[in-house]
């Protein structure tokens, strides 16, 4: 394979890996504090992307056409909206089921995901059709032989990296992060330390859902298109990434995300029918990994979290 094509594949893999990692971190955070799987998480990503798109269209109506304003406002609106949505999901759907079997939470979030998906399809103007997502980032590129290093891709990767480092710092260097880790390890003892458990759960869901919205905007900017169904596959991939990494382990989730993207890329490059089978290949390898290491790559014990 020539160097240019190889470069494109690597770049594509990194972009996908970043999105998957951001989604997977949400799954792993939710599981950490509450031992639940939020199956509406992928659809939060999708609603975040649509919120971003609607914000962009609104700004355009108001005559705001400068990307330097559009990008931050679109990002802020999408992440803030999903942060609030995440906290509401935790408060009114997940926490009330705390003493019920975990399956019930799984079911209720699965149903919520369907409601979100169908609502966008039915109520967003012409929501059943794919929507063009505006190219808000600078379009320049550096030509390296026959590989073009695109400025927008580099910006997205850098922004994703900044977000992941920020999550790391919040979890490990702040009082909030300490409380999140304490709740993840031993909820009752954490509560007797004076930690407001409900507040920590809501904040954690807000953070995780905001990360999904960020990934949703990335998705739109990368493919220049979004549709009401993008959350479905991204949700499953994010969940798989969190599982491969060892559910509850943030760094495992990040590694899992990039690993899944690497598998897809390898599948696209190495298999005869090009990209058609990349997901089949990637999921098959994930199944194999889970068969060999049922608790994921970075998890020493089932009980270990965050």
């Amino acid at each position: 394979m020539d160097v240019g094509l190889f470069g494109q594949y690597v770049m594509n893999g990194l972009m996908l890996g970043m999105m998957y990692a951001l989604v997977a971190v949400g799954f792993t955070l939710f599981f950490g504090v509450l031992d639940v799987i939020n199956f509406a998480h992928g659809d939060s990503l999708m609603v975040g992307a649509f919120t971003g798109l609607a914000t962009y269209l609104g700004l355009r109506e108001l005559g705001v056409v400068w990307p330097a304003v559009q990008v931050p406002v679109v990002l802020a609106a999408a992440t803030a909206a999903m942060a609030v949505a995440g906290a509401l999901i935790a408060r009114y759907l997940v926490l009330p089921l705390k003493s019920a079997p975990a399956l019930n939470t799984l079911l209720i979030t699965l149903m919520l995901g369907t409601v979100l998906r169908e609502s966008i399809r039915l109520f967003y103007p012409a929501g059943a059709n794919p929507k063009p997502f505006p190219a808000l980032l600078p379009a320049g590129a550096v030509e390296l032989g026959n590989f073009s290093l695109r400025a927008d891709n580099m910006l997205m990767l850098s922004a994703g990296l900044v977000v992941i480092v920020a999550v790391h710092l919040v979890i490990n260097r702040t009082k909030l992060g300490l409380a999140i880790r304490a709740v993840a390890q031993d909820e009752e003892t954490a509560r007797t330390m004076g930690i407001d458990f409900t507040r920590i759960v809501l904040v954690t869901f807000a953070i995780g859902s905001a990360l999904a919205a960020f990934a949703g905007i990335m998705n739109g900017l990368y493919y220049n298109e979004i549709n009401f169904g993008i959350g479905l596959l991204l949700g499953v991939i994010g969940f798989s990434s969190a599982i491969i990494g060892g559910l509850g382990n943030i760094y495992g989730a990040i590694i899992g995300g990039f690993l899944f993207a690497a598998l897809q890329t390898i599948g696209a490059v190495a298999l005869p029918f090009a990209s058609a089978y990349k997901d089949v290949f990637a999921f098959a390898v994930v199944i194999l990994i889970m068969a060999i290491r049922p608790t994921g790559l970075l998890s020493e014990k089932v009980s270990e979290r965050v």
Binding site: R181, T189, A190, M193
Partner: peptide, 14 residues
């Protein structure tokens, strides 16, 4: 009931 995966100082801080 110490938090096993937190350091001594983090436990105290909590």
């Amino acid at each position: 009931k110490v938090f096993p995966k937190l350091t001594v100082e983090e436990n105290l801080r909590l």
